[in-house]
Amino acid sequence: MLVLSRKKNESIHIAGNIKVTVLDVSGDIIKLGIDAPKNIEIYRSEVFQAIQAENQQAASSKTDINQLSKLLSTITEDLKKSNT
């Protein structure tokens, strides 16, 4: 992890198109301004972690649906065989 010290109104640049500026420091609260292209997604850490958890849950649900679909296909084939 890169650790930098910045004072109020000082900035850092990331990848040439993202600028992070310290807007205010009040006690243990720091306000940052982020200037980045609209296609760059920016999330607070807790929001990003919640999105990741939702994505993992959705991916596991998709696997469950695929397993159910295969099971249904097998049952359907067995029923067709038993009817002939």
Rank of each mutant, 00 (worst) to 15 (best):
M1T: 14
M1Y: 06
L2S: 11
V3A: 08
S5P: 05
R6A: 10
K7D: 08
K7V: 02
K7A: 08
N9L: 03
N9I: 00
N9T: 01
E10M: 04
S11W: 04
I12V: 14
I12E: 07
I12P: 01
G16S: 11
I18F: 02
I18L: 07
K19A: 11
K19V: 12
V22W: 01
V25C: 09
S26C: 02
S26D: 12
G27M: 09
I29E: 14
I29A: 08
I29G: 02
I30M: 12
I30Q: 10
G33F: 01
G33P: 00
I34H: 09
I34T: 07
D35K: 12
A36E: 02
A36H: 07
P37Q: 01
P37N: 02
K38N: 11
E41C: 03
Y43Q: 03
R44N: 05
V47A: 09
F48A: 14
Q49V: 09
A50W: 05
A50F: 03
I51V: 13
Q52T: 08
A53E: 13
N55I: 02
Q56N: 12
Q56H: 08
Q56R: 13
Q56Y: 05
A59W: 01
S60P: 00
S61P: 00
T63G: 00
N66F: 07
N66Q: 15
Q67I: 15
Q67N: 13
Q67H: 01
L68I: 08
S69V: 03
K70H: 06
L71M: 14
L72T: 06
S73W: 03
T74R: 14
T74L: 14
I75C: 05
T76Q: 15
E77K: 13
D78H: 08
L79H: 03
K80F: 04
S82D: 09
